[in-house]
């Protein structure tokens, strides 16, 4: 029972992070109608950004996180303005292929610049933990979980309360109508993609604290982010966090009750299950 509690806690802590990954994917998908196959690569880049902020500049990872997010926002903004805005109206096949190409570029750029070695962001408090009624809660993991929740809440508030947030939601609903109300779609798209990249970057940074990063972590994270975004519902930040929790707990359980090498297979099984269960009809979207 205590073991079960521990696994549940592990799953929840991991799930919060997964939720954060799904948020960026879902936001971009919902507003731009682009499924960003480079999302996992952006997560990976965020991880390296935070890693170098910590190792080279000595900034505490949790304090460096906003900096990494700003850098990723700028990268996302530029990508959207320079490349993606050119093909948002084209067939979905083209946006898939373009983001796939970007993914390849980022992965191998990272391999050249950062090498293929495993990296972990290792602040002094990593490995320290508190035990609550027999369940171990590592500080770093818990901190990452909290940050994920805070960011999801912030995103919710920004989309709901601010002018730009409302413009983003209006654009997601109806681009032409939003234009009539004076929304500049190019800018809104760039801000949205930038925000998606910043969220991916944050997720990557936190991932680097609780796990390991290599240039190749992106592909599976892209697939997972996609599934989480579907599970949670695209335009509901808190729902997406819920989707992340589902996947996190499922993986933690799989790792316990089956051989740990099966976790990837389980999450892939879940992926196909979610996809084939006709998400479009579940969520009422095309």
């Amino acid at each position: 029972m205590q073991l079960f509690g521990q696994i549940l806690v592990n799953g929840i802590l991991l799930g919060g992070l997964y939720g954060l990954m799904g948020l960026g994917m879902g936001l971009v998908w919902g507003v731009l109608k682009i499924v960003n196959l480079a999302h996992g690569a952006l997560i990976m880049l965020g991880g390296y950004a935070l890693y170098y902020l910590y190792t080279k500049a000595g900034i505490d990872p949790f304090l460096g996180l906003p900096l990494a997010m700003v850098a990723m926002f700028v990268l996302g903004y530029v990508l959207q303005t320079a490349l993606l805005n050119l093909i948002v109206r084209s067939a979905q096949l083209n946006t898939l292929l373009l983001t796939f190409g970007l993914d390849v570029v980022f992965v191998y750029m990272a391999q050249l610049l950062f090498s293929a070695d495993f990296r972990t962001i290792n602040p002094p408090y990593a490995g320290k933990n508190v035990t609550i009624s027999g369940v171990v809660v590592p500080y770093a993991q818990f901190g990452a979980f909290l940050v994920a929740l805070v960011l999801a809440g912030l995103l919710f508030l920004v989309l709901d309360k601010t002018r730009t947030g409302r413009a983003i939601r209006a654009t997601a609903q109806n681009l032409i109508a939003a234009r009539l109300y004076g929304v500049n779609p190019k800018r809104i798209y760039a801000i949205t993609f930038g925000t998606g990249a910043a969220l991916a970057g944050a997720a990557g940074g936190l991932y680097g604290i609780v796990s390991q990063i290599t240039p190749y972590i992106g592909v599976t994270l892209t697939a997972k982010s996609f599934v989480i975004a579907i599970l949670g519902g695209l335009d509901k930040p808190l729902g997406v966090i819920g989707g992340g929790l589902v996947l996190g707990i499922a993986e933690a359980m799989a790792a316990l009750y089956l051989d740990p090498t099966y976790t990837d297979i389980i999450s892939f099984g879940l992926l196909v299950l979610v996809l084939v269960a006709r998400p479009a009809q579940l969520l009422g979207r095309a």
Binding site: V35, V219, V272
Partner: peptide, 23 residues
């Protein structure tokens, strides 16, 4: 099953399959 999926759903399913097949 997966060819019933369209666009991104199909793409992601194939991406996932490729990622786990060696495992």
């Amino acid at each position: 099953p997966i060819l019933r999926l369209r666009g991104p759903y199909f793409a992601i399913a194939t991406l996932g399959l490729a990622a786990v097949m060696s495992a």
